[in-house]
Amino acid sequence: MGAEGLVERVRRLADGGGRVLVGIAGCPGAGKSTLAGRLAGALTAAGLPAVWVPMDGFHLADVELERLGRLSRKGAADTFDAHGYLALLRRLRAETADTVYAPSFDREIEQPIAGAIPVPPGTRVVVSEGNYLLSGEEPWPRVRAAMTEVWYADLDDHVRLERLVRRHVEFGKTPDQAARWVTEVDEPNAAAIRATRTGADLRIDVGGPAVL
């Protein structure tokens, strides 16, 4: 589905009144963040003010991951504050008269940044993306229920893995460290994420033509 089709799909969801929350799930490196940012921009340009709120803002800080013994698995489902993310989604649906602040994630320091993203009262659509939006493990089914729709971003694995290694290198790992991290951490997560894609309301080939 091309850009116009995606925008029109969200417009139909918004016709029902209330704020729309669109989630984008997918494997690491599939292009979820790029798709979410572009979708929010396209919706705003089409007269539906939208804000991109990434799930990555709910990464647990490295100091907490180290305390829990999970730093070497950063990116796995239990390295996120999933309950905090759920609470924010519920606020975003219910608290439309005031600005709600959401955290972002700074890849330069690999840490979440609190209160970095304002979602003002006039926001009609919130676009959020994350690996585990379709997971069956608690509390992710409740995260799924808090969203209007959840889409799945698909990308050819060869392209996705190349992109993923390149991203890890860009943010400080050596090529060998990046390749090992992708093999030992990202791809086991990807296998679990891929198994959930049948639960999506829409599947999008991110590598296809005319996708935002």
Score class of each variant (00 low, 15 high):
residue 119 V to Y: 00
residue 118 P to Y: 00
residue 90 R to L: 12
residue 116 A to P: 10
residue 115 G to S: 14
residue 104 S to P: 06
residue 116 A to C: 09
residue 118 P to M: 03
residue 119 V to I: 10
residue 97 A to G: 12
residue 108 E to G: 15
residue 105 F to Q: 00
residue 89 L to W: 05
residue 111 Q to S: 13
residue 110 E to V: 02
residue 102 A to S: 08
residue 104 S to C: 02
residue 94 A to G: 02
residue 111 Q to T: 15
residue 108 E to H: 14
residue 89 L to S: 07
residue 115 G to R: 15
residue 119 V to K: 00
residue 99 T to I: 08
residue 96 T to G: 13
residue 93 R to A: 14
residue 99 T to D: 05
residue 103 P to M: 06
residue 88 L to V: 04
residue 94 A to W: 01
residue 104 S to E: 05
residue 87 A to D: 15
residue 90 R to T: 08
residue 118 P to T: 05
residue 112 P to C: 07
residue 95 E to M: 04
residue 117 I to S: 03
residue 113 I to T: 13
residue 111 Q to R: 10
residue 112 P to M: 05
residue 120 P to N: 07
residue 92 L to D: 03
residue 116 A to S: 13
residue 110 E to M: 11
residue 107 R to M: 11
residue 87 A to N: 10
residue 87 A to Y: 06
residue 100 V to W: 01
residue 112 P to A: 09
residue 116 A to H: 09
residue 120 P to S: 08
residue 113 I to C: 13
residue 89 L to M: 15
residue 100 V to I: 09
residue 95 E to C: 12
residue 113 I to Q: 14
residue 99 T to E: 12
residue 108 E to C: 11
residue 120 P to I: 11
residue 102 A to Y: 02
residue 100 V to M: 04
residue 118 P to F: 03
residue 119 V to D: 00
residue 101 Y to L: 15
residue 98 D to E: 15
residue 120 P to C: 11
residue 104 S to I: 02
residue 101 Y to F: 15
residue 101 Y to K: 02
residue 101 Y to G: 00
residue 97 A to H: 10
residue 118 P to S: 02
residue 93 R to T: 04
residue 97 A to D: 14
residue 90 R to Y: 03
residue 92 L to A: 04
residue 88 L to H: 07
residue 103 P to D: 01
residue 114 A to I: 09
residue 119 V to L: 05
residue 92 L to G: 05
residue 116 A to D: 04
residue 99 T to L: 07
residue 107 R to L: 13
residue 109 I to T: 15
residue 87 A to S: 15
residue 95 E to L: 10
residue 102 A to M: 03
residue 103 P to R: 01
residue 99 T to C: 08
residue 110 E to H: 15
residue 102 A to H: 07
residue 90 R to F: 00
residue 105 F to L: 07
residue 117 I to H: 05
residue 102 A to Q: 01
residue 114 A to L: 10
residue 88 L to K: 05
residue 113 I to H: 04
residue 106 D to F: 10
residue 94 A to C: 00
residue 108 E to D: 14
residue 96 T to S: 02
residue 90 R to N: 11
residue 103 P to V: 01
residue 117 I to C: 09
residue 95 E to R: 12
residue 101 Y to R: 13
residue 104 S to N: 10
residue 104 S to T: 11
residue 117 I to L: 09
residue 91 R to Y: 02
residue 97 A to Q: 11
residue 104 S to W: 05
residue 107 R to T: 14
residue 102 A to R: 02
residue 105 F to H: 08
residue 103 P to N: 08
residue 115 G to P: 06
residue 114 A to P: 14
residue 91 R to P: 02
residue 93 R to L: 12
residue 101 Y to H: 13
residue 87 A to C: 09
residue 108 E to S: 14
residue 96 T to C: 08
residue 110 E to P: 00
residue 100 V to C: 09
